[in-house]
Design a binder for these strands. Structure first.
Length: 600
RNA sequence: GGUCCGGUAGCUCAGUUGGAUAGAGCAUCAGCCUUCUAAGCUGAGGGUCAUUGGUUCGAAUCCAAUCCGGAUCACCA
C-alpha cells in the first residue's frame, strides 16, 4: 500500500478513536504531499472536521498529531501550520522501502486481473503515408496499451485499416493515368509515399479540371461533380464494389505497396499490433444488427426505406443507419466492427478507440446506439479522444501537401540529435554504429515525448520551423539523467539491477538528507502514478512524473557525491536511490516506447 | 443555432476527488565545471488563472451567465 493511503487510514482510525461520537467519512480525509517550504512529508487537511467537531484547527491538529506520533510507527513528528497537519515520516520507512524494492524490476506492476481490453490505434487510410498527426495517435495508443498491461489487463492492440473507398480510388486513377507503371522498385520510392504522391497528383489534376470547367461557364458546384477525373474515381469505386478483377488486382497491388511502407514506418516508430482489421472485410458488417434493431423497435424505417435511430431524447439528432437503397454508411459498419471485435476476443472489458476529437460525436452516437440495442459490446466502448496536431497556419492537409511527414520527421530528429551530440563534443568512446543507434534513441525519444507530454485531449500546435527541443522538459533530459546514473554504476562495477543481497549490510544510522528523501518520496509514488495513467487514460502523467524524478535526481547529483560519499552507509543508501531511480525511469519510459541509453 | 471540448507567465504546458504564498520548461538576466557526464545545477524577473456573479472555512478547480477559439451536427468517410 502507498504511504499516502497508509496515512489516510491511520488518520481515519485516529479520528474515530479520538472522537468516537463524530461521523468521520473517509472521503473527508485529504492527504497531500507537504509543500516544500514547510517541514514535513505528508499533510492532513484539518478544515473538513472543525465544524462537526466544534474545534479549532490547531487544537484538532494537536490532538491528531499527538495521537498519530504516539500510536503509529510511521511518524516521528508533526507541525501544524494554519489548519494543516504536516507529518514527518520516519527515515527508516524510506530506508526499508529502498532495501525492499531497489532491484524490483516490476515495481508498480499489478497482477493480472483477467480482464481483456482492446486498444485500437493508428487506423490509417491507405492513400497516403503517415504524418505528424498519426504519430500522436500511434504513440498514444501504444503507450496506453502498455500502461494498461502493467495495470493487469490483457491487452489486444488492434489496427483497423481503411483500405477501401473513394480515397484509394483517387490514388489509383491518378496512378493509372500518369504513372506509366511506376512501382516502388522502379522508382526507389517507399510504397506509401508513392501512392500518396498520386493522391496529391489526383487533387492537382482535379483542381485543374474544375477550373477549366468553370472557365467554360459551368457552375462551380457542378464542375466539382463533373470533373472527369472525379467521375473516373467514382466509376473505379463502383467497379471495385462489383468485384471487377482488374480493378481489384490494382487495388491489391497499390495497397500492398502502402502496407510495405507502413510496416517500415511502424517498425521505426517501435510499435506493433496483435490484430489487423481491414475495412474491405468489415464494411458490409452491421446490417444484421440494424435488422435486429428494427425488430426490437429501437430503430425505425422512413417511407423511402432508409433506416434511422432517433436520439433526440438524448439531446442528439436522428442518425441514418441504412440508406434508402439499403447500402450501409460508416456508422453501420462501425456498429458491426464493434460487435466483431467483442466476439473475436470472447468478450471485452473495454474496447478503447484512439481517435481524434473530430469524431467525438460519432463515437458518442456509436456507443449510444449499441447500448440502446442492448449489445454486450456497448458499455466497454471508450473513446480515447485526442486533439489534432496543427501547424501555425492551421490544420495539416494532405491534399495540399502541407503535412509534416512521419518518415521525414524521424530523419530530421535523428540528424538533430547527431548535430547536437557533435556540438557538445560527446562522441568520444563510441563506435559509428553505437553513435547511429544513439542518435535514433535521442531523436525518437524527443519526438515521442514531445507528442506524449501534453494531455491527450488538448490540441497541439507544432511549428516545424522551431525544431523540437532537446533541453528542458524533454526525453533527452531524462535520458541524460539515466546515462549519468549508469556512468556511476559502471565506475562502481555495479549492474543496472544489482542482486538482492547487494546492500545486505546496509543499516540506517544517520539522518536522510532532504535531497535523498525527495528522491525516495518520488520513487514511492510511482505505482500510484502508473495507476492514474490507466484510470485517466493519460500517458502524459508518466511524462510529468519522469521529468520531475529526473530533475530531482539532477539536484541530488549536484548536491551529493555517490562514489565519494561521506561514508559507506551514505554510499549504499545513495546507490540504492540511483539504482532505483534509473530502474523506474527505464520502466516508465519504456511504457511510452522511449529507450534510455546507458551512455550519451 | 444545438451539443461537446478548450482559454493558466512573452511562448509551450503542469496543477491528482475544492486546500497553504498558482508551478515547470523555453526565452531573458546573474552565478556554478582541478571533484561521479555542464544535454546539468543554483538564483532573479515575469500572473486580473478569459470576464462577472454564486456555492463555503477555503475556488484555477464546483455551479450559472457572458466573451473568445476549436470540433461536430450529411442518404461523406
Amino acid at each position: 500500500m502507498t504511504i499516502a493511503a497508509q496515512i489516510k487510514i491511520a488518520a481515519e482510525q485516529a479520528l474515530k478513536s479520538l472522537f468516537p461520537q463524530a461521523d468521520i467519512q473517509p472521503s473527508q480525509i485529504t492527504v497531500n504531499q507537504t509543500k516544500p517550504e514547510f517541514k514535513g512529508d505528508y499533510t492532513v487537511v484539518l478544515f473538513p472536521f472543525v465544524k462537526s467537531l466544534r474545534m479549532k484547527p490547531d487544537e484538532l491538529g494537536k490532538q491528531l498529531g499527538d495521537y498519530l506520533v504516539a500510536n503509529n510507527e510511521l511518524f516521528t513528528s508533526y507541525a501544524i501550520v494554519s489548519g494543516f497537519l504536516n507529518l514527518t515520516i520516519k527515515d527508516s520507512y524510506w530506508a526499508n522501502f529502498l532495501t525492499a524494492t531497489y532491484n524490483n524490476t516490476s515495481f508498480g506492476v499489478k497482477e493480472k486481473n483477467n480482464k481483456k481490453v482492446m486498444v485500437e490505434y493508428s487506423s490509417p487510410n491507405t492513400n497516403k503515408p503517415l504524418h505528424f498527426g498519426h504519430m500522436r495517435n500511434i504513440f498514444l495508443g501504444y503507450a496506453m496499451s502498455n500502461v494498461l498491461k502493467t495495470n493487469g489487463y490483457d491487452v489486444v492492440k488492434a489496427n483497423l485499416i481503411n483500405d477501401r473507398g473513394i480515397h484509394i480510388c483517387k490514388s489509383m486513377i491518378a496512378w493509372m493515368r500518369y504513372a506509366n507503371g511506376a512501382t516502388p522498385e522502379s522508382t526507389g520510392i517507399k510504397g506509401d509515399h508513392l501512392v500518396g504522391d498520386y493522391y496529391v497528383k489526383f487533387n492537382d489534376i482535379y483542381k485543374e479540371e474544375v477550373a477549366k470547367l468553370v472557365a467554360e461557364g459551368v457552375a462551380e458546384a457542378t464542375a466539382e461533380k463533373e470533373a472527369p477525373i472525379m467521375k473516373e474515381a467514382q466509376e473505379l469505386l463502383r467497379k471495385w464494389e462489383a468485384g471487377d478483377k482488374e480493378v481489384y488486382s490494382l487495388w491489391e497491388k497499390m495497397n500492398g505497396w502502402v502496407y510495405e511502407g507502413f510496416d517500415k514506418s511502424y517498425k521505426r516508430l517501435g510499435v506493433d499490433f496483435d490484430k489487423m482489421y481491414y475495412e474491405s472485410n468489415t464494411y458490409l458488417l452491421g446490417k444484421s444488427l440494424v435488422e435486429e434493431g428494427l425488430k426490437k423497435g429501437v430503430l425505425f424505417k422512413k417511407e423511402d426505406g432508409s433506416v434511422w435511430i432517433d436520439l433526440t431524447a438524448d439531446g442528439l439528432d436522428q442518425k441514418l443507419l441504412l440508406r434508402s437503397d439499403g447500402t450501409s454508411v460508416y456508422m453501420t459498419q462501425d456498429l458491426g466492427t464493434a460487435q466483431l471485435k467483442y466476439n473475436d476476443c470472447g468478450g471485452l472489458e473495454q474496447s478503447i478507440y484512439v481517435i481524434a476529437d473530430e469524431q467525438n460525436y460519432h463515437m458518442q452516437v456509436l456507443k449510444l446506439i449499441l447500448q440502446k440495442m442492448g449489445e454486450p459490446c456497448a458499455d466497454g466502448i471508450y473513446h480515447l479522444s485526442y486533439g489534432m496536431v496543427e501547424l501555425p497556419s492551421g490544420r495539416m492537409k494532405s491534399r495540399e501537401g502541407t503535412v509534416v511527414d512521419a518518415d521525414d520527421m524521424m530523419d530530421e530528429m535523428a540528424s538533430m540529435a547527431k548535430q547536437q551530440t557533435e556540438e557538445a563534443g560527446k562522441t568520444e568512446g563510441f563506435t559509428q554504429e553505437e553513435l547511429d543507434k544513439l542518435y535514433t534513441t535521442i531523436g525518437m525519444g524527443a519526438l515521442k515525448f514531445y507528442l506524449l507530454r501534453v494531455d491527450p485531449k488538448k490540441k497541439m500546435i507544432f511549428n516545424p520551423k522551431e525544431s523540437i527541443d532537446l533541453h528542458g522538459f524533454t526525453a533527452t533530459f531524462i535520458q541524460y539523467a539515466h546515462a549519468r546514473i549508469c556512468s556511476i554504476l559502471r565506475k562502481e562495477n555495479m549492474p543496472l539491477v544489482p542482486a538482492k543481497d547487494t546492500f545486505a549490510s546496509f543499516k540506517l544510522t544517520q539522518d536522510i538528507t532532504p535531497a535523498e528523501k525527495k528522491l525516495a518520496v518520488s520513487l514511492e509514488q510511482y505505482p500510484s502514478i502508473l495507476e492514474n495513467a490507466a484510470t485517466e487514460y493519460n500517458p502524459s502523467l508518466l511524462c510529468n512524473y519522469c521529468f520531475a524524478l529526473a530533475q530531482q535526481f539532477n539536484s541530488f547529483y549536484d548536491e551529493h557525491s555517490i562514489s565519494k560519499a561521506e561514508n559507506e552507509e551514505k554510499k549504499q543508501l545513495r546507490l540504492m536511490l540511483i539504482v532505483m531511480t534509473a530502474q523506474v525511469l527505464r520502466h516508465a519510459m519504456n511504457l511510452l516506447g522511449i529507450a534510455l541509453p546507458e551512455k550519451m
